[in-house]
Simulated assay, not measured.
Amino acid sequence: MNPIGRVAVLGAGSWGTTMASIAATNAQATIWARDPDLAAEIHGLHKNSRYLGERPLAPGLRATSDLELAVAGADVVAFGIPSRSLRQVARDVAPFLRPDIPVVSLAKGLERETRLRPSQVLAQELPDHPIAVLSGPNLAREVLDGLAAAAVIATPDPDVARPLQDVFRTELFRVYRNQDVLGSELGGILKNIVAIATGMAEGLSVGDNTRAMVITRGLAEMTRLGVAMGADPHTFTGLTGMGDVIATCSSTLSRNRHVGLELGRGRGIDEIIADMNQVAEGVVTARPVVELAAEHDVDLPIATEVDAVVNEGRSAAEAYRGLRSSAPESEKHSVA
């Protein structure tokens, strides 16, 4: 694959904007925002105050609300689109893409109706394009502030991965390669549910020991489902597994942890979501993850309790009473 000269990023949320800003330091980059006012702010003032405050973006970053213009001549297109909207945007942009160029998913959720991962949705809608996933313990504001971080570009083809590494990295933002697309993508999806559970623990003031237990057992659940679906178990010890769990479960910048925290304090899920200006993918993903677990005959007690809270009206306190009643088995047996 040739070096990448032009990059398009679709979706001007916090993470899409951050990756577009990084790409603009290595290539000519354009970001697509659905809202013309947001596109104008990014293009003219080089900031995204709605999602990233006053943090400056790369001066070379361009922005537009015209989808065809955004991808014109692009050598790679990255999708920073929430899972619920990904298919429609992919379908809309398909006629405008150059043949055979790679497309990269930045999303960390499942399509609710089909339980498909973002890479699978993109493969269905853009079948003639190589698919890659960029994932890791990446809190957008910290990355944009220049704090050291790392991510993984996951794709079966190293020749596709290497140019993507070059265009999406800086001296302080490292991008590693991994051929396990399934495991890398599942880690980013499943950790959101663990973060909600961890936030609930904090909101309930059940103690640091309990939070540590939830994080650790949550990682075991992630690995268990991943292995059952065919992923490499070692992937879950890396950046897209353990790394993403640590960041999302511990940071005050985590949207999913925030949802769990507020649930633990007794607020209702609809009220919490109404007060947020970004998507917490764990809320949308909890039910399809539980359905996937049933399909693969995998026991996920933490995910099951989170699903009951966000979708069935169960209280956080009731969920934690349910987890305490689970009978422990062998620790190693319950991971793999």
Results as ranks from 00 to 15, higher is better:
residue 151 A to Q: 10
residue 47 K to W: 04
residue 107 A to D: 06
residue 140 A to C: 07
residue 62 R to W: 08
residue 57 L to E: 01
residue 58 A to T: 08
residue 111 E to P: 11
residue 89 V to S: 00
residue 137 P to Q: 05
residue 55 R to I: 13
residue 128 D to H: 13
residue 150 A to M: 06
residue 132 A to F: 02
residue 126 L to C: 01
residue 121 V to P: 06
residue 72 A to R: 15
residue 55 R to M: 14
residue 136 G to M: 07
residue 85 S to H: 15
residue 105 S to D: 04
residue 67 L to D: 03
residue 43 H to S: 15
residue 128 D to E: 13
residue 67 L to A: 05
residue 97 L to G: 03
residue 93 V to E: 03
residue 93 V to G: 05
residue 124 Q to Y: 07
residue 121 V to D: 02
residue 57 L to V: 03
residue 131 I to E: 04
residue 152 V to K: 07
residue 55 R to E: 13
residue 141 R to L: 15
residue 116 L to S: 12
residue 147 L to S: 10
residue 105 S to T: 15
residue 59 P to E: 03
residue 112 R to T: 14
residue 63 A to Q: 05
residue 106 L to P: 14
residue 61 L to V: 11
residue 83 S to H: 08
residue 123 A to C: 11
residue 108 K to P: 10
residue 133 V to Y: 01
residue 92 D to T: 11
residue 44 G to E: 15
residue 144 L to E: 09
residue 57 L to Q: 02
residue 73 G to H: 12
residue 79 F to C: 09
residue 139 L to P: 00
residue 117 R to A: 10
residue 52 L to F: 09
residue 55 R to V: 05
residue 81 I to K: 01
residue 54 E to T: 13
residue 126 L to T: 03
residue 87 R to N: 03
residue 52 L to C: 09
residue 78 A to M: 13
residue 146 G to I: 13
residue 108 K to T: 11
residue 79 F to W: 08
residue 41 E to C: 12
residue 57 L to I: 04
residue 60 G to I: 07
residue 46 H to W: 11
residue 73 G to T: 10
residue 72 A to H: 12
residue 96 F to W: 14
residue 97 L to P: 04
residue 89 V to M: 03
residue 45 L to T: 13
residue 136 G to F: 04
residue 141 R to W: 11
residue 60 G to Q: 15
residue 140 A to R: 03
residue 139 L to N: 02
residue 87 R to S: 13
residue 126 L to E: 02
residue 150 A to D: 05
residue 61 L to Y: 11
residue 125 E to M: 12
residue 71 V to I: 03
residue 129 H to E: 01
residue 96 F to G: 01
residue 100 D to N: 14
residue 119 S to R: 00
residue 142 E to W: 05
residue 143 V to F: 08
residue 138 N to R: 01
residue 92 D to S: 15
residue 93 V to F: 07
residue 98 R to D: 11
residue 90 A to T: 02
residue 114 T to M: 01
residue 141 R to A: 15
residue 46 H to L: 06
residue 75 D to V: 07
residue 49 S to F: 07
residue 134 L to I: 07
residue 93 V to K: 06
residue 129 H to C: 12
residue 148 A to W: 12
residue 113 E to G: 14
residue 114 T to V: 00
residue 52 L to Y: 11
residue 36 P to V: 07
residue 120 Q to D: 12
residue 70 A to T: 08
residue 114 T to P: 02
residue 88 Q to K: 11
residue 121 V to H: 08
residue 152 V to H: 10
residue 57 L to H: 04
residue 89 V to T: 10
residue 43 H to W: 00
residue 125 E to Q: 12
residue 69 L to F: 04
residue 150 A to S: 14
residue 44 G to I: 04
residue 114 T to L: 01
residue 105 S to K: 02
residue 132 A to E: 09
residue 90 A to L: 00
residue 121 V to Q: 04
residue 70 A to E: 08
residue 69 L to R: 15
residue 61 L to H: 11
residue 144 L to R: 05
residue 126 L to G: 01
residue 34 R to G: 00
residue 93 V to P: 08
residue 108 K to Q: 12
residue 103 V to E: 07
residue 49 S to V: 10
residue 57 L to D: 03
residue 99 P to C: 06
residue 48 N to C: 08
residue 67 L to E: 02
